[in-house]
């Protein structure tokens, strides 16, 4: 039990270290790049006064470590500065958008996880069958498709040809839950298609991997039915890789929304990030980049810990 605790503490320490390094990179890594940031933001025509003012606003006139600590303190107080583009408080700008992105990712995950695990199970159970081949062909295609193509194909089918769902996923705060769900139907479908392909393939691979073990052969020789073998013997033993795949894909969902949000003009964090990168609105880029990073690292940490818990063998590393 002690080793389990220390293993988890070690993972936690690594996650915190990663987050620390990323935050340093985001806040002052800007400095490591050649050229003057203030000048590149304002262009060649800037007067010395505006340059000095922007430098002061960005805190470029202070040494690295002070700037970093000040920035970190601000972040902890949820004071993320003001947007350079329209002078709105970044925390205000981000709050609603983060909520929207999490909503989109959560709906997609709720649908995608059970679907992919069940499909993966069935494909593993009837492997080399027509169903299995069909599924693996479909997943290979979906993996090769760029996300925006999947999104546009769905848009053409379900919004232009058969107008079931809106092509612009615009949600506002005062919408009822079902209206919201209806509005995000197409982005959710896109995300589900992209993620299910990946999750299902790995679920199938994990179960087939377990099925080649001697104890499965023993169970077969005892005369157990193949469905029972999969549910009783194979599934628990492949739980660790499956959990891993699921959590990593949810992490992917939170980040992979960027392209999908842009396609469907969804007011989420990804869209905001892309817009601010084009405007070079650094405070917004830094804040949303940090939020994405923290979410991603936290979910990966969860995947690590859950798979250690689900697989006792991992508790005793060789």
């Amino acid at each position: 039990m002690n080793s389990l605790g220390s293993l988890i503490v070690r993972r936690l320490a690594f996650a915190i270290l990663t987050l620390f390094i990323i935050s340093v990179l985001i806040s002052v890594g800007v400095e490591l790049l050649p050229g003057d940031l203030a000048r590149s933001l304002l262009g060649q025509m800037a007067t010395p006064e505006t340059l000095a003012a922007l430098r002061k606003e960005l805190g470029l006139d202070q040494p690295y470590h002070i700037r970093y600590l000040a920035w970190l303190g601000d972040v902890f107080r949820w004071d993320l500065g003001r947007s350079l583009a329209n002078n709105i408080l970044v925390s205000e700008l981000i709050g609603v958008r983060l909520e929207n992105t999490l909503f989109l990712a959560a709906v997609a995950a709720v649908i995608a996880v059970p679907v992919s695990v069940i499909l993966g199970l069935v494909a593993a159970l009837y492997r080399e069958s027509f169903f299995d081949k069909f599924v693996s062909m479909t997943t290979l295609t979906t993996i090769s498709f760029p996300e925006f193509l999947v999104a546009y194909i769905l848009m053409v089918i379900f919004s232009v040809q058969f107008p079931f769902f809106p092509s612009m996923a615009n949600v506002t705060h005062d919408m009822a839950f079902w209206d919201r769900l209806h509005a995000v139907a197409l982005p959710v479908m896109t995300l589900v298609l992209v993620v299910v392909a990946h999750m299902m393939r790995l679920t199938r691979a994990a179960i087939i991997n377990v099925l080649s073990r001697p104890y499965i052969e023993m169970a077969e020789l005892k005369g157990m039915s193949s469905a029972w073998i999969i549910v009783w013997h194979a599934l628990p033993n492949s739980l660790a890789p499956i959990i891993n795949v699921i959590v990593i894909n949810i992490a992917y969902l939170v980040v992979g929304v960027v392209v999908v949000e842009v396609v469907f003009v969804y007011p989420g964090l990804g869209q905001l990030l892309v817009d601010s990168v084009s405007n070079r609105d650094l405070p917004v880029v830094q804040a949303s980049g940090l939020i994405f990073a923290a979410t991603f690292i936290f979910l990966n940490l969860t995947a690590d810990i859950l798979s250690i818990l689900a697989n006792p063998r991992l508790r005793h590393p060789k």
Partner: peptide, 12 residues
């Protein structure tokens, strides 16, 4: 995440 990393570097 690769995409976010790339976006941040490109913004600078």
């Amino acid at each position: 995440p690769t995409l976010i990393f790339a976006l941040i570097i490109l913004s600078v």
